[in-house]
Design a protein around this nucleic acid. Structure first.
Lengths: 84, 84
DNA sequence: TTAAAATAACACATTTATGTGTTTATGATA
DNA sequence: TATCATAAACACATAAATGTGTTATTTTAA
């Protein structure tokens, strides 16, 4: 058994929530652009599974992946972070 | 010997350049906040070496690390991407 | 309701970010 | 110069993103 301070647990939960919202926002932007996951994956040159995992908030993607996705969606990177 | 298409090489160089500019911008924001790398590292709960590596554009950091840094700097994540 | 398209859910290898620690270099200051 | 603060540069282990492939499930449209 390992014990963690509440603040640490909260931080991790916050991050999980953030990644979920980030993914939901990406999904909205992609659909607004009328792209399938496959199409976005091809345009941004990342694996289709990666797109799905990001949209589902399963993974914590990197700056260069954001760059590739934003180029394919023809939006600025900051749009990927514009959600509440 | 491995051969790559020029467009692939350009893409990688673009990413390297982007990470460099990203790091330079972070450094500016940190200094504007009057924080040392060590102080920022403590406040954002990431290793001090990580801060240096990001500022030097050596690594391709993740969304949750951006989240932690932006909280410590008391700025929105999008500010980390606001540079030319 | 069936077929096709789209997405999710697996598994697994490889690369790289993260995390921890130590040592070196640089810059400012006394 | 010597000292101290800051940052860079190492090394190395671990966790996780990336990348590739296949199989299920869900959604959409005929």
């Amino acid at each position: 058994m390992i014990f963690y301070h509440n603040s640490v647990i909260e931080l991790v939960l916050d991050e999980k929530k953030y990644l979920l919202k980030f993914g939901q926002n990406l999904r909205q932007l992609r659909r607004k652009s009328q792209l399938t996951q496959e199409h976005l994956a091809i345009d941004s040159d990342i694996p289709i599974n990666q797109v799905g995992r990001i949209e589902r908030g399963e993974i914590n993607t990197t700056v260069t992946t954001l760059l590739k996705i934003s180029k394919a969606l023809k939006v600025e990177i900051i749009e990927l972070f514009m959600f509440k």
